[in-house]
């Protein structure tokens, strides 16, 4: 089965083609990151405009690189949410038009399911598994007992971990996006600044607003007193605390559900410190972190998720399919 997938939920225009939910024949990603960098974050209206400009070219490149024609495609999968609504609607309508023009069935897929299924590309899911989904918009723990079966165990009660990184980087004047910048800086520093131990009411929930405020207040205090700030050490201290919180909650969930596998998904999965901490703390279970290129938003992961969705439910969507800025993983 050949699946063509479309992803446009934020600032990446992407089309990918896979065979049988495994082999990635092509994965074209047109990133707008340079366009949005000068605004210090993604501007939704600009993102939507850029998606329209790039969408057909990305389709064409994906087919060409895969060495197939539209007639070879058996299923179209497209991100239906969550995400920026204007951006989602470009991808969804492009996917519907393509599917209709070639008489191909279409399925709408949840963006987070895509991030989780990025792990199926180079490894094999083993159930039950715990998925830690970490990105600029998400910090969630999800239990999977079989393919395309998601149970949300917990989530952030305030900021997503990626948001906290962005905010800290901005206050330090380091630029955007904050994740890779802080990760790089932190690799050269030491955890010398005291950080709070994060607590949440529910066992599997996360919270990042307290840590974020702590760091920002500390920076402001030091600046007021005109004391020097060791940016590298501050980055290390913040990153260690942020990652420790993720590790602790994941460890708890893996133990409680006797998971055979821990999956780390989402843009923050590219973080080097998180990767090494996961390796250190989960020697007893199989750990899967997708290759870097499948961590950030891309259509390859959506295509894999689309394949498994279709295998499990044998259900397709109609031409009135819509996009949703907010969407539950079970929908």
């Amino acid at each position: 089965m050949i699946v063509l997938a479309v992803e446009s939920s934020c600032d990446e225009t992407s089309v990918s083609i896979n065979k049988d939910g495994k082999v990635i024949l092509s994965n074209i990603v047109l990133s707008q990151i340079d366009t949005h960098a000068s605004f210090g974050g993604v501007v939704p209206e600009i993102a939507s405009r850029e998606h329209v400009k790039g969408i057909s070219v990305v389709f064409e490149q994906a087919l060409n690189q895969a060495g197939i024609t539209a007639q070879d495609v058996d299923l179209v999968a497209v991100t239906k949410g969550p995400g920026l609504i204007g951006s989602l609607l470009v991808g969804i309508n492009a996917a519907k038009a393509f599917a209709f023009a070639h008489n191909i069935p279409i399925v709408g897929v949840h963006h987070i399911a895509g991030h989780i299924y990025a792990n199926q590309i180079e490894s094999e899911m083993k159930f039950p598994l715990i998925a830690l989904v970490v990105s600029g918009g998400h910090t969630e723990l999800i239990l999977m007992k079989e393919h395309y079966d998601f149970e949300k165990l917990g989530e952030t009660q305030d900021d997503a971990v990626g948001e906290a990184y962005d905010k800290v980087a901005r206050v330090l004047g380091l630029g955007y996006p904050g994740g890779p910048i802080i990760d790089k800086l932190a690799a050269e520093g030491e955890a010398t600044y005291p950080m709070p131990h994060i607590k949440t009411e529910q066992l599997y929930d996360f919270s990042y607003s307290g840590l974020k405020s702590h760091v920002i207040n500390m920076i402001n205090r030091l600046r007021m007193k005109k004391e020097p700030i060791n940016e590298k050490n501050l980055a290390t201290s913040f990153q260690h605390a942020a990652v420790r919180h993720l590790i602790e909650k994941s460890r708890q969930a893996v133990d409680d559900y006797q998971a055979k596998m821990l999956i780390v998904a989402g843009g923050v999965a590219a973080n080097k410190h998180l990767r090494s901490e996961v390796e250190t703390h989960f020697k007893d279970v199989e750990v899967s972190v997708p290759p870097f290129k499948y961590c950030t938003d891309n259509a390859a992961m959506m295509g894999i998720a689309g394949y498994y969705y279709y295998q499990r439910f044998k259900k397709i969507d109609a031409m009135d399919m819509n996009g949703y800025s907010r969407l539950n993983l079970s929908e």
Partner: peptide, 12 residues
């Protein structure tokens, strides 16, 4: 954008 994208994809 909806109409333009659909027209664009049909034409392409």
């Amino acid at each position: 954008r909806i109409g333009v994208v659909v027209a664009k994809m049909f034409a392409w």
